[in-house]
Simulated assay, not measured.
Amino acid sequence: MSALTIDCSEGPSAEWDELVRIWEETDAPEGCKVEIIEGIITVSPAPANKHNVIAGKLQRALYTVIPEDWGIYQTLAVSVPSRSGLFIPDLVVAPESELVELSESEQYIPAAAATFIAEITSKSSLRHDRVSKPAAFAHAGASLYLLIDRWANGGPTVTLYGEPKDDVYRVLQAGKFGDAIHLPAPFDLVIDTGPFPG
Rank of each mutant, 00 (worst) to 15 (best):
D7T: 12
H182M: 08
T115Q: 15
G85I: 04
G154L: 01
Y63L: 14
K165R: 12
S132Y: 05
T64D: 12
P186A: 10
E25I: 05
L58M: 14
S125G: 14
R170M: 10
P110S: 15
I109H: 02
Y145E: 03
S79G: 11
W151D: 12
W70Q: 09
T42D: 06
H128E: 14
V65G: 09
Q173H: 04
I6H: 01
S124F: 06
L172P: 00
E68G: 11
S103Q: 14
C8Q: 11
F177Q: 04
P186F: 08
L146F: 02
P47T: 09
A28G: 09
T64A: 13
R170K: 13
K133D: 00
W70D: 12
E25N: 15
P12K: 15
G39W: 01
K165I: 08
V131C: 10
A142N: 06
Y108S: 09
N52L: 13
K165D: 11
F137P: 00
G162K: 07
D188A: 12
A111N: 03
A3F: 05
T193W: 00
P29G: 10
D166G: 05
G141E: 02
A185S: 14
E119Y: 00
W151I: 05
D179Y: 06
I181P: 00
L183E: 02
T5N: 12
D166R: 05
F137D: 01
L160W: 00
D149L: 08
Y108G: 00
P195Q: 08
A94Y: 04
T42H: 10
T157E: 04
N49L: 15
L160V: 05
N153A: 13
D17T: 12
H139G: 04
D17G: 08
D192W: 12
D179P: 09
A28S: 13
S2W: 02
A48M: 10
A14E: 14
P184D: 09
A112N: 05
S132N: 13
W16S: 04
E104F: 00
W23K: 06
